[in-house]
């Protein structure tokens, strides 16, 4: 299997963890503030899935009607989200914008706090699952950006003309029984 890096390992990544899980509206507002910053290469949203249909029990298969917003608009692109967002992972061109992001988050999270961490949070290399799904030569930007169990493709969001490669993918968590 040809294992290739999705992106240079030197690119810094940060994770924004809010103390409370964010509703799609809140996440949308924050993302729209973040995409204004030049130098964010990729955005990954991680959270808990709100299924379309009831997955277990006697009501299995019924529509799961909730008032949680299903669609958000970031930049000029709208995408389905279907989850409460716990973490926002950002891949940056340069570390120098971390301070700007921190300031935006500090101003944004007023009702509850947040934690910002720096490290490697997006899977850097192909796994067997990616190989099976995308073949031997996948788009390197897809690696680590999509839940292998999800049947949907990631959404490419263009916020600025000069930064075309923005992606958001809804990670699905199907482990609903605990």
């Amino acid at each position: 299997m040809n294992v290739q890096a999705a992106s240079p390992a030197s690119l810094p990544q940060i994770r924004i963890c809010s103390i409370r899980m964010m509703k799609p509206e809140t996440c949308e507002t924050l993302l729209n503030k973040l995409v204004e910053i030049p130098g964010i290469r990729r955005i990954l949203l991680h959270g808990q899935n709100i299924p379309k249909v009831i997955p277990y029990g006697p009501a299995r298969g019924m529509e799961n009607s909730t008032d949680i917003k299903r669609n958000i608009t970031v930049g000029t692109t709208s995408c389905d989200i279907r989850m409460l967002v716990g973490d926002i992972i950002l891949e940056l061109e340069d570390e120098c914008i971390i301070g700007v992001i921190n300031r935006i988050c500090t101003d944004f999270f007023v009702k509850f706090g947040f934690v910002m961490q720096q490290g490697i949070f997006i899977k850097p290399t192909m796994t067997m699952f990616d190989y099976a799904k995308y073949g031997p030569k996948p788009d390197p930007e897809l690696i680590g950006m999509v839940d292998p169990r999800s049947k949907e493709r990631p959404v490419r969001i263009i916020a600025h003309e000069e930064h075309e490669h923005r992606m958001i993918c809804a990670c699905e968590n199907n482990a609903l029984e605990g």
Binding site: S18, I19, R20, M21, Q48, P51, I54, P55, Y56, G57, P58, A59, R60, G86, A175, L176, E177, G178
Partner: peptide, 9 residues
């Protein structure tokens, strides 16, 4: 059914 949530934020 669909009880997931006790250990989440």
């Amino acid at each position: 059914a669909t009880v997931h949530g006790h250990s989440l934020r």
